[in-house]
């Protein structure tokens, strides 16, 4: 699988717990990143369109609200793709930590 773009990953991440409407995705990412990451609407809409084409997310009508508002939900495949990507990120982070920890003993590596 090809690595997902950062924006694509963030959208899947935002939807991993529960379905959200478009602006809800922006708000969620903004909140959890302490305002550091603000997805722009054009970028988000492009990602949502692509993800729908790939059947990784689907548009569902939220029945609870009086005003019919459509929300985006991860499909089973979308969930799988997200989990794979999440594991990949975790692994990258673990590798980074290992290398950074061993920075001082780097010279020993030459002898191996």
């Amino acid at each position: 699988m090809q690595a997902l773009s950062e924006s694509t990953y963030l959208v899947l991440l935002a939807l991993s717990k529960k379905p959200l409407h478009g602006y809800g995705i922006i708000k969620k990412i903004e909140k959890y990143s302490d305002g550091d990451i603000v997805l722009a609407p054009g970028t988000l809409y492009g990602v949502l369109t692509n993800l729908q084409k790939q059947k990784l997310i689907e548009l569902v009508t939220a029945e609870k609200e009086s005003r019919q508002k459509k929300t985006y939900r991860l499909t089973d495949e979308g969930q799988t793709v997200f989990e794979l990507e999440y594991e990949r990120f975790k692994k990258m982070l673990a590798i980074s930590d290992e290398i950074l920890k061993g920075a001082e003993t780097d010279e020993d590596d030459e002898e191996i």
């Binding site: 924006s7 603000v38 722009a40 609407p41 990602v47």
Partner: peptide, 14 residues
């Protein structure tokens, strides 16, 4: 500073 696109990849897609 916000604009309708927040990354170059989505501008390319446009």
């Amino acid at each position: 500073d916000e604009r309708i696109y927040s990354d170059p990849a989505s501008i390319k897609s446009m």
